[in-house]
């Protein structure tokens, strides 16, 4: 079904085409001016054809083509150290993937040519949500905006000529009942100016959402040959989100979330025992607050 806008565009296209095909746009104009007019016609014709083509292409689209806006906030920590907050916002009802173990999809990927002498630390990913689908498919995803952190070291005198602006490309896949890949070109500005209060609040919020090391003595664990049991006292709910290089588990869906303070994970027979139980443990406390801990427990069965 054609929309009225598309019909209008097609009509405009027909009119423009008939004008151009009639020959000289205006036989009364001087030759040079007529050429310019013809070039103008060509440009307009091309634009209209492109617009009509895109509109026609979208007529059959069963969904609005999603886009993931990306914004970057840079915060000067020390003289040569910056913290970048990458904000990625999937459209409503769509989700992005985290960098943890997923059965489908893939996490957003950053491509950025850093200036010579600059060094970028790894992207730091906050806790995602378990997304279980029929067929035993488990992904760890973000249903809402997500902020990734990255530490950047710059050489001295990098700002002799003022602020530095770089261009970054983010490739992503967003899914709901369907999946759509795409990319976003984002600008990132590095400045020595003092960070604003708002930016510092964003930083604090993003930092809190990251997984942190396990506090001394809080996590107890025990291995048998084929299972590992984790115990964290005063916890109402435990979830384990395996890392991509985690030791193979029998069933991360069934074993990976439990009410109470104990979580038992079965290790798949024949797994590479040189690997560890790696991932993030999310704990819901009796007051409803969360703790996210990075777990790395060598196989001990």
């Amino acid at each position: 079904m054609l929309t009225s806008e598309t019909k209008d565009r097609i009509e405009s296209r027909k009119i423009m085409l008939s004008i151009y095909c009639s020959g000289n746009p205006s036989p009364h104009l001087p030759k040079e001016q007529a050429m310019k007019t013809r070039t103008g016609f060509l440009a307009v014709l091309f634009t209209v054809l492109l617009a009509a083509g895109l509109a026609a292409a979208q007529v059959d689209m069963p969904y609005e083509v999603p886009h993931v806006p990306v914004a970057a906030t840079t915060i000067n920590q020390l003289d040569e150290t910056f913290l970048v907050l990458w904000h990625l916002s999937p459209p409503e009802d769509w989700h992005l993937y985290s960098d943890r173990l997923n059965d489908s999809g893939f996490p957003p990927a950053l491509t950025l040519q850093w200036p010579e002498g600059w060094s970028a630390g790894p992207l730091q990913w906050p806790m995602g949500e378990r997304h279980v689908m029929k067929g035993g498919i488990l992904d760890h995803v973000y249903f809402e905006s997500v902020t990734l952190l990255q530490e950047i070291q710059v050489p001295p005198n990098s700002f002799a000529d003022g602020d530095v602006t770089l261009s970054a490309r983010w490739d992503w896949l967003v899914c709901r009942d369907i999946c759509v890949p795409g990319f976003t070109q984002a600008e990132i500005v590095f400045s020595r100016s003092k960070p604003s209060h708002v930016d510092l609040e964003k930083q604090a919020k993003a930092w809190r959402a990251l997984p942190h090391p396990v506090p001394e003595g809080r996590l107890e664990f025990a291995w048998t040959e084929s299972t590992v049991t984790l115990l964290v006292r005063d916890t109402e709910l435990m979830e384990f989100h395996p890392a991509t290089d985690c030791i193979r588990l029998v069933d991360a869906i069934v074993d990976g979330a439990r009410e109470g303070d104990t979580l038992t994970l079965r290790v798949r027979p024949g797994s590479d025992i040189s690997t560890s139980l790696r991932g993030v443990l999310q704990l819901t406390k009796p007051d409803g607050s969360f703790d996210n801990w990075t777990v790395d427990i060598p196989y001990g069965g």
Binding site: V132, K134, G136, D251, I253, V254
Partner: peptide, 17 residues
């Protein structure tokens, strides 16, 4: 969680592969 666990239980036969 309840929903997830219920769902997981329903999906059990599929998990073996």
């Amino acid at each position: 969680l309840s929903f997830t666990l219920l769902f997981c239980a329903l999906s059990m036969p599929a998990l073996a592969g």
